[in-house]
Design a protein around this nucleic acid. Structure first.
Lengths: 129, 129
DNA sequence: ATTGTTGCAAAAATTTTGCATTATC
DNA sequence: GATAATGCAAAATTTTTGCAACAAT
């Protein structure tokens, strides 16, 4: 069975993903860890990210500037992506959409809802003025 | 100035994007057109897609299986992406989110809202049983 | 021992780009 | 003729994979 589940590198990769709110890309995770774990390879980061996704421990938020950005917070929440600084910001939303009920009634099986706002974040907006 | 704006290829590319509900990828558009326009090149498709995006004539819906999927329907609507067949389906939603108001009040500049549901579409769901 | 995990480098795959050529105004 | 658009192929990027070596039970 895959996911034996001990490997200090796997653990370090997950910890890095889980302990940031940056919604990192694979290469960001790799860069964070390569000082601490010099013989880490990028392939391992990708392989573990794929595993975590299968296990439902992380989700993909969006592709930003050609890179997939992930999140270890799998709770139902929305995101704001800044077109200027490419940061991804969490937004917590409580309301349930009537659309979801409609989809369910039409026979769709909703596994995940991904709400992403695109625009200019308040920090960049200030800088740009 | 960029966007002279006539080129029969540009026109054909836009027409292809605008006249499908498949939310195509660049290579799908290319494949559709290469019979009709044998000397079309994929680079041109990419360059025109980038231009249409700048012009606000199309938007990116999501990245599916590593390919960016676009939509010439720039009206505010949601999408459902099937994990099984990778189809992207339009969903029209009328309600406005209270979250948007909140973001606006916090100084964010929302340019686009992207609501994507992931799951199994009703057709695949039937087939899988 | 057996099965899982990794490093490394090569390979895939998508997207971008440089430059000479062609089309449009 | 000047500017914009394209073809082609090479390059850049991100992601995946094969395989031998290593680690864990």
């Amino acid at each position: 069975m895959k996911g034996h589940n001990f490997s200090s590198k796997r653990e370090a990769i997950f910890k890095t993903i889980a302990s940031t709110k940056t919604h990192p890309s694979a290469s960001w995770v790799y860069d964070q860890l390569k000082e601490e774990i010099p013989n880490l390879s990028l392939g391992t980061v990708y392989r573990n990210i794929a595993l975590f996704k299968e296990q439902g421990k992380i989700i993909t938020v969006a592709s930003v500037d050609g890179e997939e950005r992930i999140d270890a917070d799998v709770s139902d929440h929305a995101h704001f992506i800044c077109e200027h600084c490419s940061s991804v910001i969490d937004l917590y939303e409580t309301e349930l959409s009537p659309l979801e009920k409609q989809l369910f009634e039409s026979g769709f099986d909703i596994k995940r809802k991904n709400v992403v706002f695109h625009g200019i974040c308040c920090e960049c907006k200030e800088k740009l003025n």
